[in-house]
């Protein structure tokens, strides 16, 4: 079983993310089921993470009280190995770059997201081998380069994700 932790202050986002993740065929996860836990409060998510290990964390960036980077760096201390994703509509480039650098982000997915893209990213992070089988060529390219890479190339090309990306 794969455990995914979702954090977003908007409950409707959590519902939509759950539906999207439910569309992933267990066949792509080698028959493993997906167990999703969702929190609107990063603090509660951290509390839960003290007792439960996760295989993937997906967080919003802008949240009251604690932002996504703060949450993910706290998460890093609790569970250093868990791949970290941000899914956010916040388009500030500096914030994204900071997120990439500070919490060694595996993926940044912008809102609004494309379901197939998000599902492919999740599969790729959970089961690196099976993503290629699932995603059509175009999505594979997109998932492989992710948005982050494009942002950094725009800047000065200095930041690279490769070493931290389980894929």
């Amino acid at each position: 079983m794969y455990r995914i932790l979702l954090v977003d202050d908007e409950p409707n986002i959590l519902s939509a993310l759950r539906r999207c993740l439910a569309s992933i065929d267990v066949g792509e996860l080698d028959g493993e089921a997906l167990k999703v836990e969702a929190f609107t409060s990063p603090e509660q998510a951290l509390e839960r993470s003290e007792e439960q290990d996760f295989d993937l964390v997906v967080s919003d960036y802008r949240m009251p009280g604690m932002d996504g980077v703060e949450f993910l760096s706290a998460m890093m201390e609790l569970q250093p190995a868990v791949p970290r994703m941000i899914c956010s509509g916040y388009a500030d480039r500096d914030a994204i770059i900071a997120a990439v650098n500070e919490v060694q982000l595996a993926r940044f997915i912008g809102k609004p997201w494309v379901d197939e893209e998000l599902a492919a990213a999740v599969v790729a992070l959970l089961r690196p081998g099976s993503a290629r089988a699932r995603a059509p060529k175009a999505l594979r390219a997109q998932a492989a380069s992710a948005r982050i890479t494009r942002v950094e190339q725009d800047d000065d090309g200095a930041i690279v994700l490769r070493s931290d990306d389980p894929a």
Binding site: I13, A16, R19, K111, P112
Partner: peptide, 9 residues
Amino acid sequence: NNPIGYVNS
């Protein structure tokens, strides 16, 4: 982007 995100999804 938040509402558009979940409506779209």
